[in-house]
């Protein structure tokens, strides 16, 4: 009970501690370290000993030095902030639309009949296929990037939410209805929680699809963003720079998915078995 009573900054620190333990815990296990450390050593020493040409696989230390250099001289942080700003805008819009539409579609068969076929027609279009149209309509710029990421995130969230809602056990609906629950209460208190697992699942898919579209979109123009840096590195054949960009995008994806996992653990306490 104690941890529910703490408030304010102390509570916040506790949560951060819990999050770090949950997310980084996997990395600092003895089992994984015994795989990771040899891999890192190979990365450093294979090019150093000339087993692999250094022009193809730069040493770990070179990549690390490049990272510092990019931070200091190429305003790497600004690029990351730019990309993330767009990413979260797209994510918020996509989730803000997909979850309610999915809820309503799963809840009501009539509404479903009206709009589900539309999504079923549109969703098979692979998100990258939207690029040419988007460039023409939005021009090159933030709007285009946001729209492309939106397309990537929207469908997985929509369909998973819809499926989760539709599969809600009718026993729970019946038992809430007997006590007098209105449809709105059912949505908030029964359908939503029943679908909670699949919604979080869909957000994780959304994160990865959004990042795919981030790289694709930023490769097609713009002057800012991590995808732009990656494109630059390609044009100048800077393998260490590419690796830094790849690592950063990977880290962002990992971090966001860990955050979602943590939210799931915190909100879905009932699933933490007996």
């Amino acid at each position: 009970m104690d941890q529910y009573e703490t408030r304010g900054i102390r509570r916040f620190l506790l949560e951060i501690g819990g999050f770090l333990k949950n997310s980084l815990g996997n990395f600092f296990s003895l089992e994984f370290l015994s795989v990771l450390i040899p891999l890192l050593l190979l990365w450093e020493f294979l090019p150093r000993l000339g087993v692999i040409p250094e022009s193809l696989l730069p040493r770990l230390s070179t990549v690390a030095a490049t990272f510092i250099d990019m931070l200091l001289h190429k305003s790497l942080l600004l690029h990351i902030l730019y990309s993330m700003g767009r990413f979260f805008t797209a994510f918020a819009i996509a989730v803000g639309l997909a979850v309610p539409i999915g809820l309503v579609m799963g809840w009501n068969t009539k509404i479903r009949a009206f709009i589900l076929p539309l999504w079923q027609l549109l969703s098979p279009i692979p998100p990258p296929a939207w690029v040419p149209m988007t460039i023409i309509v939005f021009g090159i710029g933030s709007n285009m990037h946001i729209f492309l990421m939106f397309i990537g995130i929207f469908y997985p969230v929509l369909f998973n939410t819809y499926q989760g809602i539709k599969d809600t056990d009718p026993r729970y609906l019946a038992s809430a209805r007997v006590f007098g629950a209105s449809e709105f209460t059912l949505l908030r208190k029964v359908y939503f929680w029943h679908a909670f697992g699949s919604i979080i699942m869909s957000l994780k898919t959304g994160v990865s699809m959004g990042l795919v579209m981030l790289v694709i979109g930023e490769a097609y123009g713009g002057r800012m963003g991590i995808g732009y840096l990656l494109g630059q590195a390609k044009d100048y054949f800077l393998i260490p720079d590419m690796m830094v960009c790849m690592a950063i995008i990977g880290f962002i994806g990992w971090f966001l998915i860990e955050v979602l996992k943590y939210i799931e653990i915190k909100l879905a306490l009932w699933k933490v078995g007996r």
């Binding site: 729970y172 209805r177 007997v178 007098g180 629950a181 209105s182 709105f184």
Partner: peptide
Amino acid sequence: ANGVFTDHPKHDIAMIFQDYA
């Protein structure tokens, strides 16, 4: 359905389901 937004049981019934629910 009992209603779209207002919670209100149609009849004053409580029920226990076979699988508890």
